[in-house]
Design a protein around this nucleic acid. Structure first.
Lengths: 192, 192
DNA sequence: CACGAAACCTACCGCGTTACAGGTAACGGG
DNA sequence: CCCGTTACCTGTAACGCGGTAGGTTTCGTG
C-alpha cells in the first residue's frame, strides 16, 4: 500500500478483530451463543471459519471478546450516572434492538450449567446493582421517597430494565419499554 | 401383569410421555433447548434416543409438550388471582429453581430468530399482562394508589418477576427474590 | 390362542460443528 | 533484497446431532 496509508499491521489487525466481534454480536443476536457457528460469523466478515480461528483461537475466546466489548461501553464512571440518564439510556436502547437482543439471549443462556458467560453475568449484575444503589443514594439519600433503601430498590430497578427488554423484544408493538420504565422511575420517586 | 393392575395401555403411555416431559424440563434447565439433545433426555428415562422418538416424533414436538405442560400449571382462572397470592407464588417458585431455570432459559432463547418457542412466549406474555391488569383492577380499581392504571402497571409487574428470576438464578445468595418482590408490591400499593 | 398394535431396539445416514495441521502468498522492517 | 511474521487458505479429523428404516418383543383384545 502507498505511503499515504498510515495504518500499520497492528492497527489493521485490531480493526479486523473488532469487525469480527461486531459480526459475532449480530450472529449471537440471531441464534444465541450455542446456535452461533463460527462459520456464520466468518462468512459475515468474508473469511472462512479457519481464517476466523486465526484471530480467535477458540469459540469461547470470541465470546470473551464480545463480553469485553460490552464492558467498555458502560465504562462510564458510576459517579456520573443520574436517574434521569437511565431513562434516556432505555430510550436509546429502544432504538438498537440488536444489541439488546444479543445480551438478552446471552443472559438467558448463561443461567444454564457450565455456560461460559455465567460467571461474567453473575459478576456484572452484582456490580450493576451496586452502581444503581449508588445512583439512587446520590439522588435520594438513605431512603427513597417510597421508603426503600437504595440497596433494596437497586435489584428492582435492574429487574425492571431486563424484564421489560424481554417483553419488548417479543412484542415491540404491545410494549412501550421507555414509557413503562419512566412509570417505574416515577413509582420509585414518589413517596407516601 | 396381574389383574390387580388397573392400568391400561393408554394410561401407561400417557404416564411415559409425562415422564419424558419431566426429563426434558430438567435437561432444558441444564442446557437450554438448543443444547438439550434428545439422547440426553432419553437416557434420563432409560430409553434410547430412537425410543424417545416413538413418543415424540421430532424434537420440536417434545418442546411443544413441555410448553403445554406449563400452560396447564397456571390454568388457574384469572378471576381467582389476588395480589397477595402473587407474593406467595414467588415465594413458592424460590423453592423450585429447576422450573424457573427451564423457562428462563427458554425465554432467553426465544428472542432469537425463528425459535420454535417464540410465538408461544409472545402470546403468553400478552395474556399474562392482561391477567395481571385484571388482578390489579380487582384490587385497586381504575387507578392504583400510585396513580398508574392497571394496564400500565401490569408490564412492570411481569418485568419485575422475570428480571428478579435472572438475578436470583445467577446469584441466589445475593438476591432475596421474594423479599424484593414484596418490596415492589408495596411500591405499587402505596400512593402519594 | 391368534393377531394387530404398541413399545421399544439396532443400524445407519447425512449434516453441522469445533478444532488441528500444514501450506502459501503478501507484507514490512532490517 | 531477504526473511520472518502476519494473514489467510485447503484438507481433514472427530464427534454429536436429529431423523429414518426396519426389525423384534411385549401386550391387550377378540
Amino acid at each position: 500500500m502507498p505511503y499515504g496509508d498510515a495504518m500499520n499491521a497492528r492497527v489493521r489487525s485490531a480493526e479486523r478483530r473488532a469487525e469480527i466481534v461486531r459480526a459475532a454480536l449480530e450472529v449471537i443476536a440471531e441464534r444465541g451463543y450455542r446456535g452461533a457457528s463460527l462459520a456464520a460469523v466468518a462468512e459475515r466478515v468474508g473469511l472462512t471459519q479457519q481464517g476466523l480461528l486465526h484471530y480467535f483461537p477458540t469459540k469461547e475466546a470470541l465470546l470473551v471478546a464480545v463480553l469485553k466489548e460490552r464492558d467498555q461501553w458502560d465504562a462510564v464512571p458510576a459517579t456520573q450516572w443520574r436517574v434521569d440518564l437511565l431513562a434516556a439510556l432505555v430510550e436509546y436502547n429502544a432504538m438498537r434492538p440488536g444489541i439488546i437482543q444479543t445480551f438478552s439471549a446471552l443472559l438467558g443462556e448463561s443461567v444454564t450449567e457450565g455456560h461460559p458467560a455465567r460467571e461474567y453475568f453473575t459478576d456484572r449484575y452484582r456490580k450493576v446493582r451496586e452502581n444503581m444503589a449508588g445512583v439512587l443514594r446520590a439522588e435520594y439519600g438513605e431512603r427513597l421517597p417510597s421508603g426503600l433503601t437504595p440497596e433494596r430498590a437497586a435489584p428492582l430497578l435492574v429487574a425492571v430494565m431486563d424484564g421489560l427488554q424481554y417483553q419488548w423484544l417479543l412484542d415491540p408493538e404491545s410494549v412501550d419499554m421507555p414509557g413503562a420504565f419512566r412509570d417505574f422511575l416515577a413509582l420509585l420517586g414518589e413517596g407516601d
